[in-house]
């Protein structure tokens, strides 16, 4: 697989950047002519990952969020969303539907389920105290 285009974004973990980040990634993906439904899926999944970095990763502080995105010659989009925040100790548990550490803030524990449903592939790497990277793939074009 060859990378045909690539981009990187870095921004502060402010809620105002959630819309910016999801629109930027979907605008980047437009080059491979995906359907509107596919673009909506990408926007939603990126919004989940970025929101998690803001509300969980950095919780009561502000840090940097990095997004890298690549278009591959087999018609796939790869996106990774990274923070250097508090990290996740039990990734499998965090990814279960309805698991949340913030029920008092009306979180419902559905973010990872949305990412997994809306993207073709999701993996999470995390280390407590070091941060979290969510990698996602989505097919933009039939082969």
């Amino acid at each position: 697989m060859e990378i045909i285009n690539q981009m990187e974004l870095r921004f502060l973990s402010l809620p105002e950047n959630e819309a910016f980040a999801r629109v930027a990634v979907s605008a980047f993906a437009v080059q491979l002519n995906p359907t509107l439904d596919v673009l909506a899926d990408i926007k939603t999944a990126v919004s989940e990952a970025v929101t998690n970095a803001i509300v969980h990763g950095y919780e009561n502080e502000t840090g940097m969020i990095a997004i890298t995105s690549a278009l591959l010659d087999d018609g796939m989009l790869e996106v990774s969303v990274s923070d250097t925040g508090k990290g996740i100790d039990d990734i499998a548990r965090a990814m279960q539907p309805f698991f949340t550490t913030q029920p008092e803030k009306e979180r419902s524990g559905m973010g990872f389920s949305v990412m997994q449903t809306f993207m073709d592939h999701v993996t999470v790497e995390s280390a407590p105290g070091r941060g979290t990277t969510v990698r996602m793939k989505k097919r933009l074009q039939e082969k």
Binding site: S47, E48, T51, E106, R107, S108, M110, G111, V114
Partner: peptide
């Protein structure tokens, strides 16, 4: 025009 899981929380709340 758009909703993510934060919206689920608002509606369920």
């Amino acid at each position: 025009t758009f909703m993510d899981s934060s919206g689920i929380g608002v509606i369920l709340g």
